Simulated assay, not measured.
Amino acid sequence: MTAQRQEANQMGAKPHFRPGIMWIALVLLAGFGAPGVGWLAGSGPVALATTTERVVTNRYSGLAIEGYDPLAYFVDARPEVGLPDFEAVEWSAVWRFTNEGNRASFVAHPEVYAPQYGGYDPVDLARGITVAGSPMFWTVAGQRLYLFAREETRDAFAANPAPYAKEATLRWPSLEDQLAQ
Rank of each mutant, 00 (worst) to 15 (best):
42 G>D: 09
66 E>W: 04
79 P>C: 03
56 V>Y: 00
50 T>Y: 02
34 A>W: 14
38 G>D: 05
31 G>Y: 08
75 V>W: 04
63 L>Y: 11
52 T>F: 07
39 W>I: 09
33 G>W: 15
48 L>I: 11
50 T>Q: 15
71 L>D: 00
42 G>V: 08
56 V>D: 00
49 A>W: 11
57 T>L: 02
77 A>C: 03
48 L>G: 03
29 L>Q: 08
35 P>Y: 05
45 P>C: 02
82 G>C: 06
42 G>E: 07
73 Y>T: 04
81 V>E: 08
50 T>N: 03
53 E>P: 01
71 L>C: 04
60 Y>C: 01
41 A>S: 13
49 A>V: 12
32 F>L: 15
51 T>A: 13
38 G>F: 04
67 G>I: 15
82 G>A: 07
61 S>D: 07
63 L>I: 02
55 V>Y: 05
61 S>N: 08
73 Y>A: 04
62 G>I: 03
63 L>E: 15
79 P>M: 08
74 F>A: 07
59 R>V: 12
60 Y>I: 05
43 S>K: 12
71 L>H: 01
38 G>I: 05
76 D>Y: 06
50 T>S: 15
54 R>M: 10
59 R>Q: 15
69 D>V: 03
66 E>D: 14
79 P>F: 01
65 I>V: 10
51 T>D: 14
35 P>T: 09
72 A>F: 00
68 Y>P: 00
39 W>V: 13
36 G>V: 12
50 T>K: 03
34 A>G: 07
74 F>C: 09
50 T>G: 13
61 S>K: 06
46 V>Q: 12
45 P>I: 09
30 A>Q: 05
35 P>W: 04
30 A>L: 14
34 A>E: 04
48 L>Y: 02
66 E>N: 14
47 A>M: 15
68 Y>N: 05
46 V>N: 03
40 L>A: 15
53 E>R: 13
81 V>R: 14
67 G>Q: 12
43 S>F: 10
34 A>M: 13
38 G>R: 07
52 T>V: 06
50 T>P: 01
76 D>V: 03
71 L>W: 00
56 V>W: 00
44 G>P: 10
65 I>C: 01
64 A>L: 09
49 A>L: 10
58 N>G: 14
57 T>H: 01
33 G>Y: 11
49 A>F: 10
64 A>N: 08
53 E>W: 01
64 A>T: 10
62 G>Q: 04
74 F>L: 08
37 V>K: 09
30 A>K: 07
54 R>Y: 02
60 Y>T: 15
42 G>M: 08
45 P>S: 14
66 E>M: 12
54 R>D: 10
31 G>S: 13
61 S>F: 04
71 L>V: 09
80 E>F: 01
67 G>Y: 06
58 N>L: 08
63 L>M: 11
33 G>K: 15
33 G>V: 11
55 V>C: 02
57 T>N: 02
31 G>I: 13
46 V>P: 00
77 A>R: 14
58 N>F: 06
54 R>L: 08
72 A>G: 03
28 L>K: 06
52 T>Q: 14
77 A>F: 03
66 E>S: 12
50 T>F: 02
40 L>H: 11
69 D>P: 04
72 A>C: 03
28 L>Q: 09
34 A>Q: 11
80 E>K: 14
